[in-house]
Design a binder for these strands. Structure first.
Lengths: 233, 233
DNA sequence: GTACGTTTAAAACAGACGTTTGAGACGCGG
DNA sequence: CCGCGTCTCAAACGTCTGTTTTAAACGTAC
C-alpha cells in the first residue's frame, strides 16, 4: 500500500483512475469481500467489470498490487478521519469544552466507522468486511505496510484510553482497548457467529442499530472494575 | 459434516482413522488454519504428512470432504460439551445449588472454550482459529450443516441468557448474546486487530489471561443498562 | 502358496490460474 | 497526412490445481 501523496494544503491527492481501472476496482472490491483473495480470479473480476483480462495487469501491476489498491483506496481516508477525531477531542478537552473519558475516546472510532458504514460511495459496510477478512486471514500483503504506515494510530488510541481511565495499569488499558475494538470492529463488519447457526435474532447490518447496542456494551466493559485476584499476592 | 453415530450409552463413537488418515487430518488442520482452505493444496498437505497424494482421495472422498472431516472431528465434542454445561447449570439451578445469572450462563461457554484452548490433543487454540476463519469466510461447506445440526445450541444459549436477564426484551437479549459471544470468540481465536498494526501490548495467546480479562469485560457489557432513547416515543 | 481386499505409489488427466505477448484501435498535436 | 502515446483485445505461456488411473506391495484367511 503506497500512501497517497499530499498536495500543498495537506489534503490527499487521490490517484486518478481511468474508467476501466475504476470498474476493475469496484468489481474486485465486491468479489474480494464475498470470495476472499485466493478464491477470486482475475477472469471473474474482469468479466463482471466488463473489461478485458489483460487490463488488470496493465492498470495495476499484478493481482497483489490490485488488492493493495482496493484496500488503500478505502482504508487511508478512514484512518485519517480517525486521527482527526482524536486530535479534535484533545483540542476540545484542552479548551475545557469536552470531557476526556472512555466514551469520548470510543466515539473517536465509532463516528468514522458509522460514517463509513453508511456511505456506499466510500465502500460502506463492504469495506469493513474486507478489512475483517484481511485481519483474520493475516495477509502478507498488508501486514508490513499497516504496521509501518498506521501503527501510530493504535499508539494514539492506547494513549488516549490510558488518559481516560487513569486508575488502570498499562496492561489493563491494552486489554480493554483490545476487547473494545474487537467487539466494535466485528460488529460493524457484521461478523455474526450466531447467524452461522441460523438462529440469530439480531439484524446486525443496520449501522445505527449496531451503534445503539454496541456503545453501552463496550462502555460498560471498558469501565468494568477488574476482578480481585483470588489468590495472587 | 456427518454427525458421528452414538453407541448404546450415548457416548460418541469416533470413526476410526488409519494412521495415514490421521496424519493427513493433522497436517490439514494446521495448514487450513495458517493458509485457509483455498490456499492449501493437497500436495502440500500430503507432503507435510509424509503420505502419498492419492491417499487423500482414497481415505476422504475429496478436498471438501477432508475439510468437513477436519472440522467435525474438533467441533462436535466441543459443541456437546457446551450442551452438557448448559444442562448441568439448569439442573443445579433447579436443585437450588447454583444461581442462574449471566455469569453462570457465560461460564457454560467459557469453560469448554478454555478447556479446548489448553488441550492440544483436541486441536487446542488452533481449532478455534480455524473456526474463526470458517465464520469470517462464510464457507458454503459448513453453513448448511452447522445450522441444521447445531442451531439448537444457539437457541439454548439464547433462552438461558433471557432467563438470566429477566428485565430485558428478546431483542436486547439477542444483542447481548451476539456481542458477548463475539468478543469471547474472537478473543479465544486470538484475532487481535491491534496486532495487525504491530502495536498490541496484549499477549492474547495465553488462555488463562484471556479468561481473566474477558470475563469481567463481557459480564459488565451484558449487565449494562440500556441507553435511554433520546427522542423516540 | 495362493487368492483376496486393503493400502500405497507414481504418473497422467483436464482445467483453471496469473501473467505476458504482439497486433491493432483510438485520440491528438504536428 | 503523419507519428506517438494510451489503451484494448484475443491468444498463448508455463505452472499449479483437484482428481483419476494404473500398477505394485501388503497382511490375512483358507
Amino acid at each position: 500500500m503506497k500512501s497517497s501523496s499530499l498536495s500543498d494544503d495537506g489534503t490527499p491527492v487521490e490517484p486518478k483512475y481511468s474508467e476501466t481501472a475504476l470498474r476493475i476496482l469496484e468489481a474486485a472490491e465486491r468479489l474480494f469481500v464475498e470470495l476472499g483473495l485466493e478464491a477470486t480470479s482475475l477472469r471473474l473480476i474482469t468479466q463482471q467489470a466488463g473489461v478485458n483480462l489483460a487490463a488488470v495487469n496493465y492498470h495495476f501491476r499484478s493481482k497483489d498490487a490490485l488488492f493493495e489498491a482496493v484496500f488503500a483506496r478505502r482504508f487511508e481516508p478512514w484512518a485519517r478521519e480517525c486521527l482527526r477525531e482524536l486530535e479534535r477531542l484533545e483540542a476540545r478537552a484542552a479548551a475545557g469544552t469536552a470531557r476526556f473519558d472512555a466514551e469520548a475516546v470510543m466515539m473517536c472510532y465509532v463516528r468514522p466507522a458509522l460514517a463509513l458504514s453508511k456511505d456506499p460511495s466510500r465502500g460502506g459496510a463492504l469495506f469493513v468486511r474486507l478489512f475483517s477478512r484481511v485481519l483474520v486471514e493475516n495477509h502478507r500483503v498488508l501486514r508490513e505496510t499497516l504496521s509501518r504506515d498506521w501503527g501510530h494510530l493504535v499508539t494514539r488510541y492506547t494513549e488516549a484510553l490510558g488518559r481516560a481511565l487513569p486508575g488502570l495499569s498499562a496492561e489493563e488499558v491494552a486489554w480493554r482497548l483490545h476487547l473494545g475494538f474487537s467487539v466494535m470492529f466485528h460488529a460493524f463488519a457484521g461478523n455474526d457467529i450466531l447467524k452461522l447457526f441460523g438462529r440469530s435474532a439480531v439484524s446486525a447490518r443496520d449501522p445505527d442499530l449496531i451503534v445503539k447496542h454496541v456503545v453501552p456494551f463496550v462502555l460498560a466493559g471498558m469501565g468494568a472494575v477488574p476482578r480481585a485476584e483470588s489468590s495472587a499476592p
